[in-house]
């Protein structure tokens, strides 16, 4: 029995016809450009980060990482990520669900709104919170009267991070869910599953790879965000400094080893993210293609 889906998949993986293949010199030039670009702009800085971090030996490196303020910055960054990533998972899934599976007024507007953090400078994102929660801000007086501290404290940093990382999960899921449609959910409901079972057994497994991608990217950004966090954090050493902010402070104090040691951790995070993503693609590539292709 012929299977159109399997056929199309095979065709997809066949090599291209000679008519649309570039000549060898053209291929070589294109690849040279790509590698040169990647080397200068990505690989070289990465090497320098590690080189500088280890310039005075391994012990200086570990010593600068065990500094109390550095440790506090690491802890804060982990805490912020641990709060904002789950929040964005919940938000991302809800938004993607609403946009992909329902028809409602203002849907286009909501889709645009989700992209807002990508199009707005992070500094502006931070400033918005200052204007909202600051002493002279819209809610500042009320917050102060009730003894709630948001700005220049952990809540403000979390809010700014959540805002900046808003789109990652949602953007990854929306096209995926739109493409998959409602068929599987309807099937589950017709078999007697309730809403929660349908979500847990059918919807979530269908989007799990997209979700994982989104979470990885979201996490990387949550730990690496500088601009928005810088505006709302207040740069209080050992209290409201995240790793990126701490790097800047150390660098401005001419503590190159300290700055690059912390930077190397962030760079390491980026590398781990990349490796995880690549591993996922290698291990489950076919399955990822299948859940997307259907």
């Amino acid at each position: 029995m012929a299977d159109p889906e399997i056929k199309s998949y095979e065709q997809h993986h066949e090599s291209r016809s000679p008519a649309v293949t570039e000549s060898r010199p053209a291929q070589a030039v294109l690849m040279a450009i790509v590698f040169a670009f990647l080397g200068i702009f990505l690989l070289l800085p990465l090497i320098i980060v590690f080189h500088e971090a280890l310039a005075k030996g391994v012990s200086a490196y570990t010593q600068s990482l065990s500094d109390a303020d550095t440790r506090s910055a690491i802890r804060l960054t982990l805490l912020v990520a641990a709060i904002s990533v789950p929040l964005n998972i919940v938000f991302g899934i809800s938004a993607a669900w609403a946009i992909a599976k329902f028809e409602f007024k203002g849907k286009a507007f909501l889709t645009t709104l989700i992209d807002l953090p990508f199009s707005v400078s992070p500094v502006i994102s931070g400033l918005v919170y200052v204007l909202l929660f600051g002493a002279q801000g819209l809610l500042g007086g009320w917050l102060k009267a009730h003894g709630i501290v948001i700005l220049f404290a952990v809540p403000g940093i979390v809010l700014a991070t959540v805002f900046v990382t808003f789109p990652f999960v949602a953007r990854e899921l929306i096209p995926l869910m739109q493409e998959q449609g409602n068929g599987d959910e309807e099937a589950a409901l017709s078999l007697g599953a309730n809403g929660w079972q349908t979500f847990w057994y059918v919807t979530l497994p269908n989007v799990k790879w997209g979700l994982l991608y989104g979470v990885l990217l979201c996490n990387a950004r949550a730990m690496g965000e500088f601009g928005a966090v810088s505006v709302v954090s207040g740069h209080i050493r050992g209290l409201t400094n995240t790793m990126p902010l701490h790097v800047e402070i150390l660098y401005n104090e001419y503590n190159a080893v300290g700055a690059f040691a912390v930077a190397s951790l962030l760079a390491g995070l980026a590398l781990v993210t990349l490796v995880l993503k690549t591993l996922l693609e290698m291990r489950y590539g076919a399955e990822i293609a299948a859940t997307r292709g259907h």
């Binding site: 309807e186 099937a187 007697g192 599953a193 057994y201 269908n206 259907h294």
Partner: peptide, 18 residues
């Protein structure tokens, strides 16, 4: 639909691929 106890076969089958 859960309470109606109907068996529905969808045009594109809607089998759970995972």
């Amino acid at each position: 639909i859960q309470d109606r106890n109907v068996g529905f076969v969808f045009q594109h089958y809607a089998l759970f691929r995972h």
